[in-house]
Design a protein around this nucleic acid. Structure first.
Length: 410
DNA sequence: TCTGGGGTCCTGGGACTT
DNA sequence: TCTGAAGTCCCAGGACCC
């Protein structure tokens, strides 16, 4: 298989090139960028469709600065200019504001990302239909059977994709071309932004082995730390280890996978279809809440999360039979509880009832910073033989779920 | 004052069944 | 009736990804 990995650099403002910019924080009403632009520049209409053509006309001074930011939230991504100040993904915004107060701060705006994401992906599938969705701004493409796909080792097709995306959205796109998904992903990082990198099987030792193990998609901070503890810093170091040694130290599955990854082996196909396994909603509170003292507020949030998950399930046509909750305490410790049902549901009341049961199994005497609700073991709505949206069980006295408990109303 | 939200996958322990 | 082994399912936690 020949694979492309294309990642789209979402929302690049030409006038911010070379400037420290961070994207992060939660979506708030006052972050309505289009509304602000319309107010500041009333000539012409600011819509998602005109945005791409007009974005380079927005003056730099229009964008808010990180200086003086207060509140919770982390950086989703940062430009290289911002990273030079020590600012990076997953860093708290308040800490970032101290390190680089002059950075421009753009709010996370998933609605707009989804809009551009759909355009980005539909352009690609028009050109190369075998595409795997890898998130909002990334895809894998199998171009083995695309006419002309092999010209100049894939470069011609990659250029066509980049040009088509830029013309439609004003966005740039990095492309990696390689014999498999694993290497294509690494290749796409070589030449960012808007680059094309082609890596052949024979390039493994010269291009891949010198890279840090952390560059492998699937080696995170924990595994990297452990590898370093063994003196394994580069992918080449990893490849030099025996497979059985890696299995002994990293487990049967992960050890074997590490070995294959180091040798550039990856036979995963480009999957064009996938079914979701779970859907969830969670929220971090502006301040830590207490189950008793903030009962009303927590109860309202809990109900809203259940309703949101139910709405997501119904809108997308799924039902689930494993219902769970997630809490994060003020010390950042996370706990989860879930419960499987004998039938499938997408009903908000039912989800809330079962999630309420799960809440009874955790310590609610400690302050909470996050609450989440999850529905798993999904099937297409109506596909399960015993799929019934039970109303909440009849009010049978003595049922445990009826016990008044802290912020649940059950 | 640190540390979002929405996912997938893996592991290990315990309960249950055969 | 008891016991142990093996397989399976459920549950909780953690690593990782975008």
């Amino acid at each position: 298989m020949d694979a492309f990995y294309a990642s789209c650099e979402l929302l690049r403002y030409p006038q911010l090139k070379g400037m420290p910019v961070v994207i992060g924080g939660g979506r708030r009403k006052e972050d309505d960028l289009l509304g602000k632009l319309q107010a500041a520049y009333p000539e012409g209409e600011w819509t998602e469709d005109t945005f791409a053509e007009r974005l380079d006309r927005i003056p730099v001074d229009f964008f808010p600065r990180l200086n003086g930011y207060t509140g919770r939230g982390v950086i989703t991504t940062a430009t290289y200019a911002a990273r030079q100040f020590g600012v990076g993904s997953a860093m708290g915004l308040m800490k970032a504001a101290k390190l680089c107060p002059q950075a421009i701060m753009l709010p996370v705006d998933f609605e707009r990302y989804r809009h551009f994401s759909r355009t980005f992906k539909s352009i690609i599938t028009d050109i190369a239909p075998v595409m795997q969705d890898r998130g909002v701004d990334e895809v894998y493409i199998d171009f083995t059977d695309v006419p002309g796909g092999q010209r100049e080792g894939g470069r011609v097709l990659a250029r066509l994709i980049q040009k088509s995306i830029f013309e439609a959205t004003g966005l740039t796109c990095s492309v990696g071309v390689a014999p498999n998904k694993l290497i294509a992903k690494m290749a796409s990082e070589f030449n960012k932004p808007n680059g094309i990198s082609i890596v052949h099987e024979a390039d493994l030792q010269t291009l891949i082995w010198p890279l840090a193990c952390r560059k492998i998609n699937g080696v995170g901070p924990k595994a990297d730390e452990k590898l370093k503890g063994f003196g394994i810093h580069t992918i080449g170091d990893l490849a030099a280890r025996e497979q059985h040694w890696l299995i002994e130290n990293f487990g049967k599955s992960y050890g074997a996978w590490l070995f294959d990854a180091a040798w550039g082996r990856d036979d995963r196909p480009v999957e064009t279809e996938s079914e979701p396994v779970s859907m969830s909603r969670e929220t971090t509170f502006e301040r830590d809440l207490h189950a008793v003292r903030d009962r009303a507020e927590l109860g309202a949030v809990f109900t809203r999360l259940c309703e949101q998950v139910a709405a997501d399930l119904q809108r997308k046509g799924y039902e689930g039979k494993t219902i769970g909750i997630k809490l994060r305490y003020d010390n950042f410790q996370a706990v989860t509880r879930d419960q499987s049902l004998s039938d499938y549901t997408a009903d908000a009341k039912r989800i809330r009832q079962v999630a309420g049961q799960c809440l009874k199994r955790v310590d609610l005497s400690r302050r909470l910073r996050l609450l989440g609700v999850r529905v798993g073991s999904l099937v297409k709505a109506g596909a399960a033989p015993d799929s019934v949206n039970h109303p909440m069980k009849a009010e049978e006295p003595g049922h445990e779920w009826q016990t008044q408990l802290l912020f649940t109303d059950d």
